[in-house]
Computed example of a mutant assay.
Amino acid sequence: MNKMLKPPATHLLGRALATLLSAALLACALAADTSAQGGGHTLMGDVKVDESKAEGPKPLAFDIILYRERGDSNTVGRQTVPNGGRYRFNDLDNGYYDLVVEVEGAEVARIRVRIFAAYKNDFTQNIEMEWRAPATAGAKTAGVSTADFYKRTSAAQKLFDRAEEAMTAKKYTDAVSLFQQLVGADAQDYQAWTELGTAYLFQDNAAESEKSYLRAIGVRPAFALAYLDLARLRMAQKNYDGAVEILTKAVALQPPSADANLLLGESYLQLKKGSKAVPYLEEAARLGKPEARLRLATLYDRVGMKDRAAAEYVQFLAAKPDYPDRKKLEQYIKENKKQ
């Protein structure tokens, strides 16, 4: 029987620099509990398996397992998800995680996930796989699309791991030095460039941070995370035109990004271009960002379209039934919903 293909782990998901956005920027959009600093996060994503090349029996479901740090004994949770379904892990602390996919007890994919934010936040990591035709009777092989990881030498990977450990320990000077060594030895390591940008950001060195993100994009124009990190940096600096420039490119990438659409919609709102914000906020909501409904409702309310605002609140509460100000929104809906 052929071995299951297990790709190197990709680690980049949520970014701590998202917290550098001003508190007012998304105040009326975020339903997060800001008292839960450094924890209470949610990791979720869709499981999509291309079975077009498969022969014979296909998996009925996939076990999605989340491990904290690198220890497989430290299991956070396990869920069984069908093809086309969605997994969700709640109440996660800041840190590194391994997201593992198993079929009938055999590991077929492992994705490195990095979750960092000062306040409660949602992070998305979709899992896209291809279930391939067996090479021999009874044999199965599985593969994962791993466009967003960089294959390093063993020595470089150890250096990368040390740099990430320094980031976790908030030793940003050490992290910068280690990431500089990585990109100095291999200027094509777009993940290291992106992480270097984040390390600089924690040192309040926005200029070098932007340069690093731009280097990552220059090396790999399809690496969405570098676009998002750069856009958040520019938004934190209130450079919304610059954010729109980079996010317009990000939303054109595949697979579609809920974060990119949400941030682009928000940037247009900050530029007082509501009509341009609407389609991106709608797409963000469709892709799993219910807070976009709040922004749309606020926009519609301000221009007197209260029935449409009420309709957005209805959809938001359907996605976030435990929203703290639920009663206030329900009262608004009652007063303004189109009969």
Rank of each mutant, 00 (worst) to 15 (best):
A147T: 13
R152K: 11
S154W: 13
A156P: 03
K158M: 14
D161C: 06
A166H: 04
M167D: 09
M167A: 10
K170F: 10
K171N: 14
A175F: 04
L178N: 06
L178W: 01
F179A: 04
F179H: 00
Q180C: 07
Q181T: 02
V183C: 10
V183Q: 03
G184D: 07
D186G: 04
D186S: 04
Q188T: 14
Y190K: 00
Q191M: 12
Q191E: 06
A192W: 08
T194L: 02
T194C: 07
G197K: 03
T198C: 02
L201D: 09
D204K: 14
A206W: 11
A206D: 05
A206E: 11
A207T: 15
A207H: 14
E208D: 11
S209Y: 08
S212K: 00
S212I: 01
Y213K: 00
I217R: 05
I217Q: 00
G218S: 15
G218D: 14
V219M: 06
R220G: 05
P221M: 14
F223C: 05
F223I: 04
A226H: 03
Y227T: 08
L228T: 06
D229P: 08
L233E: 09
M235W: 02
Q237V: 12
Q237K: 09
K238G: 05
Y240A: 03
A243L: 08
E245G: 06
E245M: 11
E245Y: 07
I246D: 05
I246W: 12
I246G: 11
I246R: 12
L247F: 04
T248E: 15
